[in-house]
Computed example of a mutant assay.
Amino acid sequence: MDEFNDAVTVLDEGECWEHLGSHQLGRLVTHVGEVLDVFPVNYVVDGASLVFRTAEGSKLLELTVNDHVLFEVDDWNDERAWSVVARGHAHRLDALTEIEAADRLPLRPWIPTVKFTYVRVVPTELTGRAFARGEEPDRDSVQPG
């Protein structure tokens, strides 16, 4: 029996999008120079992309300097867990038609702040895994390696 293969399942692209569409809170990872930052953002899936709103500040500045991002969403319960990572590019929506379309999305700030700027994350790579949760196997009966 291979405990790892029984406990971990690689998700296909469709399953990754299903999981992303079932949630509203993720983590955006930016990278500028030697600095990595992680920002929690509420988002919606829009086609084959993710859209969130933000205010002027470090998140938006960092995306202007380097648009390469990671976006991660996960969830768990007593029996299962999953994690999806989207690698791609983020860009501010500037065209009036893009902003008007984004205004129609079911996306509202979770905190009482005004956020005028929409950002779209377009994944170039989408990966995910699902996990069966349970007790750790007896380590004495497993050979490392």
Rank of each mutant, 00 (worst) to 15 (best):
Ala132Glu: 06
Arg120Ile: 00
Ala48Trp: 00
His31Thr: 08
Val114Ala: 14
Leu61Gln: 13
Glu100Phe: 05
Thr117Trp: 04
Gly26Ser: 03
Cys16Ser: 10
Gly47Ile: 04
His31Asp: 02
Asp78Val: 04
Leu107Ala: 07
Val119Leu: 01
Leu126Ile: 08
Glu79Arg: 15
Val44Asp: 05
Glu136Asp: 14
Val45Glu: 02
Asp2Cys: 14
Pro40Ala: 07
Glu62Val: 08
Phe4Glu: 13
Gly128Phe: 12
Pro123Ser: 00
Ser58Tyr: 05
Pro112Lys: 14
Arg108Met: 04
Asp2Val: 02
Trp76Ala: 09
Val73Ser: 00
Asp140Asn: 08
Arg53Asp: 02
Gln143Val: 09
Arg139Ile: 08
Asn5Ile: 15
Asp78Arg: 13
Thr127Gly: 05
Val142Gln: 03
Lys59Glu: 04
Pro112Val: 04
Val10Ile: 14
Asp74Asn: 09
Pro109Ser: 09
Pro137Ile: 08
Asn5Tyr: 15
Ile111Arg: 15
Trp17Arg: 10
Val73Arg: 04
Glu79Asp: 14
Glu79Met: 10
Phe116His: 13
Glu18Ser: 10
Thr127Met: 05
Val8Ala: 10
Asp78Trp: 12
Glu3Gln: 15
Thr64Tyr: 13
Ala55Gln: 03
Phe39Tyr: 13
Val84Ile: 13
Leu25Ala: 07
Gly14Lys: 15
Glu13Ala: 03
Arg108Ser: 07
Arg139Met: 05
Glu100Arg: 14
Leu96Val: 11
Ala55Asn: 08
Asn66Lys: 15
Pro109His: 08
Gly14Met: 10
Gly128Leu: 03
Val119His: 07
Thr117Val: 12
Leu60Gly: 06
Gly33Arg: 12
Arg108Asn: 11
Leu61Val: 08
Ala7Tyr: 11
Ala7His: 10
Arg92Ala: 11
Pro123Cys: 00
Thr113Tyr: 10
Glu15Ala: 12
Leu93Thr: 05
Ala86Gln: 05
Val8Pro: 08
Thr9Pro: 07
Thr9Arg: 14
Val32Glu: 08
Glu15Gly: 04
Pro40Tyr: 01
Val29Pro: 01
Phe116Thr: 05
Val29Met: 11
Asp2Ile: 06
Glu18Cys: 02
His91Lys: 12
Ala7Trp: 09
Asp12Gln: 03
Val84Asn: 01
Arg27Pro: 04
Arg87Gly: 03
Glu72Gln: 09
Arg27Gln: 10
Asp75His: 15
Ser22Tyr: 08
Ser22Trp: 08
Thr9Ala: 14
Leu126Phe: 02
Phe39Pro: 05
Arg87Asn: 06
Thr127Leu: 02
Ala101Asp: 11
Asn42Thr: 03
Leu93Ser: 04
Pro112Met: 11
